[in-house]
Amino acid sequence: MKLAEGFARDVGCRADLLWRCDLVDGAQTPAWVEFVATAGFSSVPGSSRLGVAVLEDPSSGHRIVAVLRTGRLQIRLDAMTPKPARVQQARELFDRLRALGSQSERSPAEAR
């Protein structure tokens, strides 16, 4: 459930709030969402009606929108994030998600 290397401003990004990354294997998106939800992100209810899952980092309010059928991920920084801090916070969240993706590939024993 690894994330691809690419990380860039997403379509419609306004003032560095929307960022795009992708799972290498889109078919694994539901499992990835489940895994990330056990790693400190909370699931936003009701979002799956559109075929997406939305996860929220409770400490920052930043969200990750995951397209269940394709593996597209969109990082949506909280709208109140100060502009000068946005790029760095997006990058940090992406790095965290990448680390989680790598962690999910390891066996439970390795992960310990």
């Binding site: 419609g12 075929g51 059928r69 394709t70 597209r72």
Partner: peptide, 15 residues
Amino acid sequence: GGVLASPEWEGLVGP
């Protein structure tokens, strides 16, 4: 256009 390019649209209809 923004909605058509959004993840929500991709989830509901496809890219």
